[in-house]
Design a protein around this nucleic acid. Structure first.
Length: 479
RNA sequence: UCCUUAGUAGCUCAGUUGGUUAGAGCGGCGGACUGUUAAUCCGUAGGUCGUAGGUUCAAGUCCUACCUGAGGAGCCA
């Protein structure tokens, strides 16, 4: 007899079978004669009800079976006479594998705030909400590899430690083995990184894109999926100092191919969740609906599953930056002065409020914005024929904002070099990158998807710290 | 980093214009109950009011600084 997972027990429902199951106690309740134990092993959102006769086990043993305790139960699966479940386990023997002192165990059989559960992030996967979230997180990881593998993409592990600080995606975390108290100094009085571990200054990566491009210039279709690090002092519900990013890069792709890929990718992932995680989505949806009851009617969002279906079934709106500015400029909001940052014309930087207007009010569906002014975008994005804009694209989602950022890359060496000069990017650090333009250069494109932002959308959670196991944010690096 | 807001029992919160001994619900513990579904009913313990200063006869309540959380903005994925 081997241990069975609760998800399989409930799915097969073989009444009469003798089984052994191990897991953690969610609650125990009962009367003088019988105890009911809600047992969960993390394999499903549903609990297995274990029925224990008080007479058979004694109060001393039952007292150890508290919320949070790990137990093993052997017994017979029987039809349940209660109304909450179809089958239950009639316990023949119970082993308390690890107790949990109810005076001290912080997860109580009651509703907790997400803020409190963040403080006990080491125990929160034991809750219904977080086990659902992390099962979905796994399913999405799996779906991402599936998607790319099915389409002939190769997964590349780009380096996590990098010596280049020219990626331009944000502030970096320095890594060093030098004595922080007493570092070696150069004659000028700066820290002498030539004596450091790598013989030069090193940082954690902010993006695998540049290295990804190198591999796309050889394997044609590649994607990275790894951790990235940003030392920005960003205190929002959409930013993390350590997060996971998926970055496909494809040779011989232009901006339109890139948009097609991004849209197909996102729809595939959402459909995958609808197909494989419905149980957990239903739970998160009901949880969300419960929370929304406290909000005024006009601030409530669409029901989770309805929202996912809507995005999966409808085409994204594709719009150039220039057209977006026109729409925003002529909008009632702008004319009535409702925007905090009024739109005056081409060149205005789009703020969150403008993106939200386009996605949530004007089109009511995801929007892909393209061809931004070159001044507000990165050096490697391909200059358009008008000389003013670049072939960039941002995929904007309701509530979340930018979920994907990408572009067709500048493959023309002379233009790339002059763009780098304009933007003060030191060429000597990126000779290896420029080599791909010198030798067998070709048009190519790619994008980056913030994995946790995707999870925000799929799970309906509103704080990014709740969709990663252990969040790293400014002033927070516990566990 | 900026703006707004909050920090009182294990958790979620109430605490009036500053005024005697700090309150509730849930959770815990003890008891009752012949099958419960966040069980129910009765009883009970539990607090240096975020930290440090200050104002005052008197501070959970007012002021200042700092710490931490939340919402929004910027930066972005």
């Amino acid at each position: 007899m081997k241990n069975l997972r609760i998800v399989d027990i409930l799915k097969l429902g073989q009444v009469g079978a003798e089984i052994t199951v191990k897991g953690w106690v969610r609650t125990r309740r009962g009367s003088k004669n019988v105890s009911f134990i809600a047992l969960n092993d993390g394999s499903t959102n549903h609990n297995l009800q274990v029925v224990a006769e008080v007479e058979a086990f004694g109060e001393e043993l039952l007292k150890l079976i508290n919320t949070g305790a790990a137990i093993g139960v052997t017994g017979k699966l029987v039809e349940s006479t209660g109304s909450g479940q179809s089958v239950e386990l009639q316990a023949a023997s119970i082993e308390v594998i690890g107790g949990a002192d109810p005076e001290k165990y912080p997860i109580q059989p009651k509703r907790h705030s997400l803020e409190f559960l963040r403080e006990v992030a080491h125990l929160r996967p034991r809750t219904a909400t977080f086990s659902a979230i992390f099962r979905i997180r796994h399913a999405m990881i799996f779906a991402i590899h599936n998607f790319f593998n099915d389409r002939g993409f190769y997964n590349v592990h780009t380096p996590i430690i990098t010596s280049s600080d020219a990626e331009g995606a944000g502030e970096m975390f320095r890594i060093s083995t030098l004595d922080a108290k007493n570092p070696p100094l150069t004659e000028e009085g700066d820290v002498d990184f030539s004596q450091d571990f790598f013989g030069k200054a090193a940082n954690l990566t902010v993006s695998g894109q540049l290295e990804g491009e190198l591999f796309a210039m050889a394997l044609s279709r590649i994607y990275t999926f790894g951790p990235t690090f940003r030392a920005e002092n960003s205190n929002t519900s959409r930013h993390l100092a350590e997060f996971w990013m998926i970055e496909p890069e494809v040779a011989f792709f232009d901006l339109n191919d890139n948009m097609d890929l991004a849209e197909e990718f996102l729809k595939y992932l959402i459909n995958y969740a609808l197909e494989h995680c419905m149980d957990d989505l239903l739970f998160l949806s009901s949880r969300l609906t419960e929370e929304e009851k406290n909000k005024p009617a006009d601030q409530r969002s669409m029901e989770l599953i309805e929202k996912l279906r809507f995005v999966a079934e409808n085409d994204f709106v594709r719009l150039t930056y220039t057209d977006a500015i026109e729409i925003l400029k002529n909008s009632k909001q702008n004319k009535k002065g409702k925007f905090q940052y009024p739109i005056t014309g081409y060149g205005t930087d789009l703020q969150s409020e403008h993106e939200r207007f386009l996605v949530e009010v004007e089109f009511k569906k995801p929007v892909i914005l393209t061809n931004y002014p070159k001044e507000i975008k990165a050096f490697y994005m391909r200059l358009d024929d008008n000389g003013k804009t670049v072939s960039a694209m941002d995929v904007l989602f309701p509530q979340i904002g930018e979920i994907i950022g990408g572009s067709q890359r500048e493959e023309r060496l002379d233009i790339l070099e002059s763009r780098m000069e304009e933007m003060h990017i030191p060429k000597e650090d990126l000779e290896w990158y420029l080599d791909t333009r010198r030798f067998g250069g070709c048009p190519h494109a790619g994008f980056g998807l913030g994995f946790e932002r995707l999870l925000l959308f799929v799970t309906g959670m509103t704080n990014i710290r709740d969709v990663i196991p252990f969040a790293r944010t400014p002033k927070n690096c516990e566990f």
